[in-house]
Structures are given as C-alpha cells and as structure tokens.
Amino acid sequence: MKLKRLTELSLLTAVALIIFVVELRFPDILPIQGMKLGLANIITVYAVFVYQPSETAMIVACRVLLGAMFSGTMISLFYSASGAVMCLLGMLILKKFLSLDYIWLCSVIGAIFHNIGQICAAMLMMRSTAVIWNLPPLILFGAIAGLFTGLCAQVLLKRMKNIKKL
C-alpha cells in the first residue's frame, strides 16, 4: 500500500474516532437501547464510495475497536462490531447499483442493516427474542439518522473532489 493512501486512511480513522468520542457526550434522545445518531458513519459512507472495500473495512475495524476502548464499554464491542459488519456488507453490495447522487439512499439502507445486525447480536447475547420488538422503532430512527449521515457524506464527497484537484 502506498504511504499516501495509508496516511489518508489513518486520517479518516482519526476523524471518525473524534466524531465518535464527541457523540458519546450527547444525551440520549429516546430511551431505546442502542439508539444513536452514529455520526461517525459519515466517514464510513464516504469511504465506501471513495476507497476499496478492504480499505473501508480497515477504517471501520479500527474505529469500532478503538471506539470501544475509548468509550470504556468493551461489552458493547460485540454489538457495534456486528452492526458495523452488516452495515458495511449492505452498503458495499448496494454501492454497485447506485450512482453518486444516491449516497443518502445507500446510507439509509446501511443504517437499517446496522440495526438488524445489532438486534441479532442482542438476541444471541441475551438468548431471548423479546428484544426484537425494539427493531421497528430502531429501524425508523436509524433510517432518519442514516439519511442525515448520508447527506453529510454526499456533501463531503463533492467538497473533497474539489480539494483533491488542487
């Protein structure tokens, strides 16, 4: 891997981590387990459309692992990891069918996959299907949050193109 590429990836990971840590300070909006804006996923969505799948996976893996360490809740690592894997798979597949104007749609579906992954992990961990009832409100809220992060990524992508031209 070229050094420049590696530096770009590490920078993106650092930015994602900063967003993640700042977001930890936000108060919870609604009392449903796992409901978060997921602003750090702006970077994930951006990376999906700009970098190779393997490079995106590296960013996400580092962010999830370090994020769990920074937030001090290692138990949540299992949930966020399964959510991130599902989200990434969904978005990487979808990316092939969508143009750059529909990044937001890709992000919305990524958010839905993320929530499905997390609930599956919760069902495995708790050995109970009761948590599945959290899924519909989580998907709804996640879709709104995903729309926002997706639009952010779309704007970011356009700006970054201009910057890279310089």
Binding site: L94, F97, L98, S99, D101, Y102, L105, V108, I109, I112, L135, P136, P137, I139, L140, A143
Partner: peptide, 27 residues
C-alpha cells in the same frame, strides 16, 4: 440530481415499503 434509473427506483420502493411497515409496527 439525476433522474433515478431502474435499479435505484426498485431500491427506493423497497426501502419505502420497509420503512412504512416499521412505522405501522412501531405504532
């Protein structure tokens, strides 16, 4: 924004139906 092509339309519709279903279930 360009007009959605066929694939995009299908994905949009599926997502819309899913979200609607979730809204009904949530209520």
């Amino acid at each position: 924004m360009t007009k959605p092509d066929k694939n995009t339309k299908i994905i949009l519709i599926i997502t819309g139906i899913l979200l609607l279903l979730c809204a009904v279930l949530t209520i």
